[in-house]
Amino acid sequence: MAEQVEERTGLSRRHGRSRQSSLAYGLVFLIVAYLAVFILLPIVQQFLTSFSNNVVGVDKVQWVGLRNYERLFEDDDFWFSVQVTFTYMAFVVVGAVSLGLLSALLLNRKFRGRNLARGAIAVPWAFPEISAVLVFLWMCNPTFGVMNVFARLIPGIDENLNWLSDPKLAMPLVIALSIWKAFPFTFLVILASLQAVPRELYEAAEVDGATRLQVLRYVTIPEITPTLMLMAVLMSIFSFKQFTLIWLTTGGGPYGGITETLVLRIYQTAFRFFDLAYGATLGVSGFVIVLGLTLLFVYAQQRQDRARRR
């Protein structure tokens, strides 16, 4: 009887294991199928389109080999947009991470109204991009905008500034808006990271007589470096992909593609000029750039991990 029970129990265990593994395979299959259909297939399709002459209205879509890539390498506007993209990225990454770090350091200290300040600082992140841009456009309006009220207080400025139409001001303003929108996210993550730094390290530093600056340099920053690096990569990707803020404020202008990043160029080429093939080629170049950035981050993180283990 006992053997029978054991046998039966064993059977049911095997049966249970098999059901569990079927469920696991089923769940994995769903994820793989989702990734294949919605991520991999479009990427493959994009690569294939980049080797064709697929322009909306063309008589016959044909394989054109590397012609689009030849055009890409000879296209001055493409290289300029890459330059604009990296300039924009560099400023947004440095600005958002620095401002996030600074705010997190300040709001990690105890003071009255700290929670309110933390909540207030997170508001720009929660604000919808389109609403933010509309308010920003009103503020920058050369005729009625509030920015000119303040600008006119500066000695030497007698006329209203044409903020977003001025080639010297357009990019800094777009960068400022992007940083304002992005830094609350870096602030929240860095703040969480700061709170995870062990207290003993600070106590030890205090015992050793370290100054505040030394504590920051030798305790805080090394402890939160992985978070800062992660933020740098996330902000790079955020700024690389940024479309709404730039498109709605300057549309890539005021002229000469001064604020036209690669993403805007892809949109213009594919969805305004209907040159799907070249749009796909630009998209592939963007994919390669983002892939490069991500690999760089992985490499840097591995190197840092190895150094820490030593």
Binding site: G57, N162, S165, P167, P254, Y255, G256, F273
Partner: peptide, 21 residues
């Protein structure tokens, strides 16, 4: 007429230099 937007974009881009610069 088949490339109205692309044509327009070139014109607008250059003309914007007239307007703001």
């Amino acid at each position: 007429i088949f490339f109205n937007q692309e044509f327009g974009n070139v014109v607008m881009d250059k003309f914007s230099e007239v307007l703001v610069a």
